[in-house]
């Protein structure tokens, strides 16, 4: 019992630390990737090739003045950035990041907890991410923030449907909701082979859920200053960024677990395989951002409701038919 408690605490601390650190360093990675795509160098001053840039940014944000607008709803204004971060940090609790290891004769699964509804837990938490954005935009009492919040809310409602439906195919094939079981049922073949359309839909819809370019209408800087976080400064602003970059890590980890075989892989240690796959998916997200221009509002809604949603429904029906034909 005590052994279980200690290992779980250690796992929680490691996951927590790695997640926050990778969220910080993703800002640097994003700037470096953007620079490469635009034929620049990116940050070069702080440390070797700018490797200390996230730390410098963090210290700067800590010491900046924390401004709360005069007419803002104080409690909700402070609460909103916290609500953004909590679901992101909690989601990783059910994601398996390595094969079970043996310590002192005990088998320790490399996953904080294996709940039997793992994937539903992830979806339930990801559907809560919207509140931080919406409440923050509303509590700021500013036109731009409110516009950004309303846009984001409408966008997230539209894309969440396709996001959830794109996963159903994987659940049907695996026949289980537990993420550990889904990973072990991909030991022979990754699910991206059976579910290429589901994978694409999840990739697009999750980009929209995270409010990233080309779906960043909620913070479109050319039209509404910075959208929902216009009035935020200092660490509250940083919290929005930790939330956003943490979400990239989480979504990459979910894609890895559901479609790319999780930690399964030959030769290398399982944790390393997991990290490599997550890193590659993160690169796809960054590549996405610096390649496509922002969609117009009606184009965004058309893509969500007229293309992604029917496609994900058709994906479920086709998957079901094929499974029956093959007699699985």
């Amino acid at each position: 019992m005590i052994f279980w408690l200690i290992t779980t605490l250690i796992k929680i601390l490691i996951v927590f630390g790695v997640l926050l650190l990778s969220a910080a360093y993703l800002t640097l990675l994003e700037r470096k990737v953007a620079a490469r795509i635009q034929n620049r160098l990116g940050p070069m001053e702080a440390g070797f090739h700018g490797y200390l840039q996230p730390i410098a940014d963090g210290i700067k944000l800590f010491f900046k003045e924390d401004i709360i607008p005069a007419d803002a709803n104080k409690l909700l204004f402070i609460l909103a950035p916290i609500i953004v971060v909590i679901p992101v940090l909690t989601t990783f609790a059910v994601i398996p990041f390595g094969a079970p290891i043996k310590i002192f004769g005990h088998i320790v699964p490399l996953q904080i907890t294996n709940v039997n509804i793992g994937i539903l837990f992830v979806l339930a938490l990801s559907s809560l991410g919207i509140y931080g954005v919406v409440i923050g935009g509303w509590a700021s009492n500013s036109k731009y923030s409110l516009l950004g919040a309303i846009r984001t809310a409408a966008q997230m409602i539209s894309y969440e449907l396709s996001l959830v439906l794109s996963i159903i195919g994987v659940i049907m094939i695996a026949g289980n909701l537990s993420l550990a079981q889904i990973v072990s049922s991909q030991a022979h073949m990754w699910f991206i082979v059976y579910q290429p359309i589901g994978f694409l839909i999840y990739l697009i819809a999750s980009t929209a859920e995270m409010n990233r370019v080309p779906f960043d209408l909620g913070e479109a800087e050319g039209e509404i200053v910075a959208g929902f976080h216009t009035e935020y400064s200092s660490m509250k602003f940083a919290f929005y960024f930790i939330g956003e970059y943490g979400q990239i890590v989480i979504n990459s980890a979910i894609i890895t677990t559901l479609f790319l075989g999780g930690w399964e892989g030959p030769f290398l240690p399982s944790v390393l395989w997991f990290v490599i796959k997550v890193f590659l998916v993160i690169l796809i997200y960054l590549w996405f951002r610096w390649t496509y221009p922002r969609l117009r509002y009606d184009e965004l809604m058309d893509l969500g409701w007229k293309i992604l949603l029917p496609l994900s429904l058709a994906n479920i029906v086709v998957t079901g038919f094929i499974m029956i034909l093959l007699g699985k």
Binding site: L120, L123, A124, L125, S127, L128, I130, Y131, V134, I135, I150, A153, A154, M156, I157, E160, V164
Partner: peptide, 14 residues
């Protein structure tokens, strides 16, 4: 959580 907190309450807030 998914249906009530994640979907219906979002519509109310909106």
């Amino acid at each position: 959580i998914m249906v009530y907190a994640g979907a219906i309450a979002v519509i109310i807030v909106l």
